[in-house]
């Protein structure tokens, strides 16, 4: 029991020392890389959600795409849903994660803001015979510095590009390239395995350039 308590105390002390020294390069670099990996995970799901045809040429059921949608939403704060927090005695509702898209081809047009839940649902239901989405490799995702916003909470921004090609009967009919900025939250949380850094994705700002 003593050894167990000592191990827990040691882990807590180590985590606190690590977090208080977040400004040190190696710790911050590790967390920034993890944020990039979380974005890469999201990008992987996005390509799976859009994909309509498997390698064998068979149609991928919508239920499969919805499964990946649910998995993708779990990467976001509150699973992409709105949530309530208390600031003193005041109740405050935080809207679900949003995606705002502006078009480079139509700069005077109002940006389109959509709940991430809705964006992914729309992606799964696009009327193309197939959709191919490719993204910047995780090693090339750009990540800003981590900035403290609260006790044990930090934020950073990840940037990457994504290309989208929509096919009808094997012929590409639409293509665009999107630049995406994703806000990432880094929390220190108490889990079953002790204190851990948790990464969650937040709002996304995107600019798209239509090609076809």
């Amino acid at each position: 029991m003593k050894r167990f308590a000592a191990r827990w105390a040691g882990m807590i002390l180590l985590a606190l020392m690590s977090f208080s020294a977040l400004a040190q390069t190696s710790e911050e670099d590790m967390l920034r890389r993890r944020a990039a990996e979380k974005c890469a995970q999201f990008n992987n799901y996005v390509s799976l959600i859009g994909k309509k045809t498997g390698k064998n040429g068979k149609a991928i059921p919508v239920e499969t795409r919805m499964f990946y949608r649910e998995a993708a939403l779990k990467l976001f704060i509150a699973n992409g849903n709105s949530y309530t927090e208390y600031v003193g005695s005041e109740e405050r509702t935080i809207a679900g994660v949003m995606m705002q898209t502006t078009s480079v081809n139509r700069p005077n047009q109002k940006p389109k803001s959509t709940l991430m839940k809705t964006y992914l649902l729309n992606l799964a239901n696009l009327r193309y015979s197939d959709v191919v989405i490719t993204s910047t490799d995780v090693s090339n995702i750009k990540v800003s510095s981590l900035r403290k916003i609260d006790e044990d909470t930090y934020v950073c921004t990840c940037y990457f590009n994504q290309t989208f090609i929509g096919y009808r009967d094997g012929i590409p009919v639409y293509k665009d390239r999107t630049s995406k900025y994703v806000k990432c939250y880094v929390y220190l949380e108490s889990t079953e395995d002790g204190l851990e850094y948790i990464i969650r994705l937040g709002d996304v700002y995107a600019t798209d350039t239509e090609r076809l």
Partner: peptide, 19 residues
């Protein structure tokens, strides 16, 4: 091919103010 995702134009873009 793929240059717009990972190539020289992507890498040289000063995408973030931090950058």
């Amino acid at each position: 091919p793929g240059g717009e995702l990972d190539g020289i134009f992507y890498k040289s873009r000063v995408a973030l103010v931090d950058e």
